[in-house]
Computed example of a mutant assay.
Amino acid sequence: MNSNERSPDFTFSIAAKLRAAGCVFAEDEARLLAAAARTPDELAAMADRRASGLPLEHVVGWAAFCGLRIAVDPGVFVPRRRSEFLVRQAAAVARPGDVVVDLCCGSGALGAALAAAVGRVELHAADIDPASVRCARRNVASAGGRVYEGDLYAPLPAALRGRVDLLLANAPYVPTGAIGLLPAEARLHEAAAALDGGADGLDVHRRVAADAAQWLAPGGRLLIEVGERQALQAVGIFERSGLLARAVRCDELDATVVIGTMPGADRATRRHRDRE
């Protein structure tokens, strides 16, 4: 255990600083900072960065997600707890050996969490942001995942076309006009490209859905997170792209996921035929 955790007075003073800066869970955050810091001076510096508004995850270098510690570098999108619902939905239908692609992967949290839940998968991920790509490579390394830098499908190996069983895309879905309403932690310290979804928040979703049929295997699924009020429109986008679509909701996590299925033989049937 870090020696800072055995200094209640010092940790209390850190908590007081964080509380004064508006951190709602100041005591919990102070304990996390104390566990991460190697010296009292480093702890004080970390507390100063947090008090200035830097996201806690960027200060300590990781985020808790689906029971994992996901490395999160400065500027990289911090995985939200609500996105655990998307992972649950994917895990409910995933099978060992599935080909999984995580688009707009950010830190790679979705792919890493799904691989941990399912076991052996063929994991690929892509993001347009170089910092996110570097971060994701660390997070998916234990699952043997590969991460590519580029815009959506563009950097993916052509050999994946028509083979993807699960396509995950936590694409940005905040409408441009609402960006200014986001908490300062996100607005000031995460890349705009990871937040801004265009006029109605669904610009990237349209692009993902439009080309999904080229990459999904028969019976493969596309899962995307959206806002609750965007669900009906997103379902329509999926359907116009040739997918069978539905929306699912988790009130506990305030999370909405739209799932599109590629028509055709289900994966179990397809694999049985492939073995014959």
Rank of each mutant, 00 (worst) to 15 (best):
T39C: 06
P40M: 03
P40F: 02
E42A: 10
E42K: 13
L43C: 08
A45D: 05
M46A: 05
M46N: 03
G53D: 06
G53T: 07
G67M: 02
R69A: 04
I70A: 10
D73R: 14
G75I: 03
V76P: 14
V76M: 15
R81P: 07
R82E: 00
S83L: 05
A91K: 13
A91Y: 03
V93H: 13
R95F: 00
V99N: 06
V99A: 04
V100D: 14
L103M: 06
C104L: 07
C105Y: 07
G111Q: 10
A112S: 07
A115G: 07
A116D: 10
R120V: 00
R120Y: 00
E122G: 12
H124T: 01
A125D: 06
A126H: 05
I128W: 09
D129V: 08
S132W: 01
V133Y: 03
R134W: 00
C135I: 02
C135H: 06
V140W: 01
A141S: 08
R146A: 12
V147M: 04
Y148C: 10
E149T: 08
G150K: 09
Y153G: 12
Y153K: 15
L156S: 10
L156P: 09
P157W: 04
A159Y: 04
R163M: 01
D165C: 05
L166P: 08
L167Q: 14
L168D: 10
N170C: 08
N170A: 07
A171D: 02
Y173T: 08
P175F: 02
I179E: 02
L181H: 10
